[in-house]
Design a protein around this nucleic acid. Structure first.
Lengths: 205, 205
DNA sequence: CGGGAAGCGGAAGGGTCGTTCCACTTGGGC
DNA sequence: GCCCAAGTGGAACGACCCTTCCGCTTCCCG
């Protein structure tokens, strides 16, 4: 989805697909700290083939990440269409966190700063815009606390990211519990003092 | 505090102290991924001197970590003596999270499994026992939800760990906000369904 | 079906890391 | 003050990483 439909030879095309698939699986299971050699091995190609398609490891990460981010945006869009805005909000948060919990590389890539990665930043902006709509609707119904900000989503995602373990099931269970607590705190009914102001986005680049 | 009072030569003693101090500062500022060479350089000694005192990097991390964990326990003990049990509980969680936010190495070391590190596990057990007392008192007053478990503290600490950034101030601010949300959710007044059951401790070793 | 460009694998370059080795220095009991 | 064990610094080792290079193979156009 990052352009690059520049006609490849059919065998090269197959290899490229295998590389992306194997990279996605490996990043999901073990995080971003997997060696390029390992990814190439699992894809059944040499490292040179990998580097021919993706000139650097960052480029590969971005490619895989872009697809995930798109799925992410889709999930938010679906949540935006929920007849019940509050339920839509909850669904969005739940879905995002579950995706993150199931994919170690995703969270790492999402939270690592990519200041120069134009397409990635674009995609993220799109996802954030969609989420902003969900938030606005939920606030309008009065169920979501009015002082909820975009930073709070970042906070949730960063916190959720800290829950990563070697076992996907454990991570997902922990994530679910975390999200349940968060959603409870995000409800408007309690007039508790709003938490301190933040500048997380800036800190993340 | 880990024994080892085996008489050292005075110059060796000074070097050892400098090493621990510099390691603590460096781990706090930059996390555990600092090279041994760098730590030795900042302490003004050669790497051999470092390795003579701490046969492995893990050993050094554990030494520094043990001191922090002790401070941690002290904080919990102080919270246990608060006249208001709920306030004591809040203070304990707040203090623990702030310490974690201020020290990158601490959280990393705390959450990394050290199955074989006897003294560390001992210290952690002590801290957990003290915290269990705080929890029991808070539950007795009815302000802390009855289904709160030890796993929830682990959940909080792991989530809080995910908030680490390059700027300490940012991390602390984010941590404060996170804790405010958590404490709100931990209050008993809402009869919301208790989150799913967990097995985090097992997952962490 | 033949030639040439595109594609390929694996070895090698350059870097960093944790750790070890060894010739040299120094503290402190006699 | 002498002497040697304890202590020291910095070079060197092996393992790993990302990336590049190069001689060989394979596809595909004409």
């Amino acid at each position: 989805m990052a352009g690059e439909t520049t006609q490849l030879r059919v065998d090269a095309r197959q290899n490229r697909d295998r590389i992306v698939a194997s990279a996605r699986e490996t990043f999901a299971a073990d995080g971003l700290d997997v060696s390029m050699t390992e990814i190439a091995r699992r894809a059944g190609v040499g490292v040179a083939t990998l580097y021919r398609r993706f000139p650097t490891k960052d480029a590969l990460v971005r490619e895989v990440f872009a697809e995930q981010l798109e799925a992410c945006t889709g999930e938010v869009r679906r949540a935006a269409e929920d007849p019940d805005p509050w339920r839509g909000f909850c669904r969005a948060v739940e879905k995002l966190c579950e995706m993150q919990a199931r994919d170690r590389g995703f969270s790492a890539a999402f939270l690592t700063a990519f200041p120069e990665a134009v397409p990635v930043d674009e995609l993220r902006a799109v996802a954030e815009e969609a989420f902003a709509g969900v938030v606005a609707r939920a606030k309008a119904t009065g169920r979501l606390r009015p002082d909820f900000t975009t930073d709070d989503l970042t906070l949730v995602l960063m916190a959720n990211n800290g829950l990563a373990t070697d076992s996907v099931e454990t991570s997902v269970a922990a994530s679910r519990r975390l999200v349940a607590y968060f959603l409870q705190a995000f409800q408007a009914r309690d007039p508790l003092p709003p938490p301190v102001r933040l500048g997380l986005r800036d800190a993340l680049g």
